[in-house]
Design a protein around this nucleic acid. Structure first.
Length: 108
DNA sequence: GGTGTGACAATGG
DNA sequence: GCCATTGCCACAC
C-alpha cells in the first residue's frame, strides 16, 4: 500500500482545470492503480478539512453522476460549486459531461 | 492480519 | 436504456 495515495489523489484533483470535470476511474488510472476507483472515492471522503481545499466537486463517477454530493459540506453544496464554474447540472448529472470531461493524462 | 465497507467500473442479461 | 453480479483496491476496525 501507499500511504501517500490520499495526497496523490488530492494533487490530481487540484490539477483539474476550472470548469472541467473528471472521473474516479480516470484518476485511478492516472495514479497507475487502474482499478482503485473506489479507493479514490474513499480518499475524497477524507478530503474535508484538507488544505488547500480539494475541488472534489469536479470529480464524478463515469457517467457524470454526482454520486458524492450527499457527502459535501452543507454550506458548499456540490451543485453550487459546479454552478460557480459554469457547469450545468440536471438531475444530479453533469450536462455535456463528455464535453467537459478532462483526462489527467492530457498533462503528459 | 482477516473482515467489511465504499463519493467505482466493467460486464452480461 | 436499466438492474444484478463481479472484480478491484485502499482503509478502518
Amino acid at each position: 500500500m501507499e500511504p501517500d495515495f490520499f495526497e496523490r489523489v488530492y494533487e490530481v484533483v487540484r490539477l483539474i482545470p476550472p470548469g472541467r470535470v473528471t472521473t474516479y476511474g480516470a484518476i485511478a488510472r492516472f495514479l497507475g492503480s487502474g482499478r482503485s476507483a473506489r479507493a479514490v472515492g474513499y480518499a475524497l471522503n477524507a478530503c474535508h478539512g484538507i488544505q488547500p481545499m480539494v475541488p472534489a466537486h469536479r470529480v464524478v463517477n463515469r457517467i457524470g453522476l454526482l454520486s458524492g454530493k450527499h457527502h459535501f459540506d452543507p454550506h458548499q453544496p456540490m451543485v453550487a460549486l459546479l454552478a460557480a464554474e459554469n457547469i450545468q447540472v440536471t438531475e444530479d448529472r453533469i450536462c455535456d459531461f463528455e464535453r467537459l470531461f478532462w483526462n489527467p493524462e492530457s498533462l503528459l
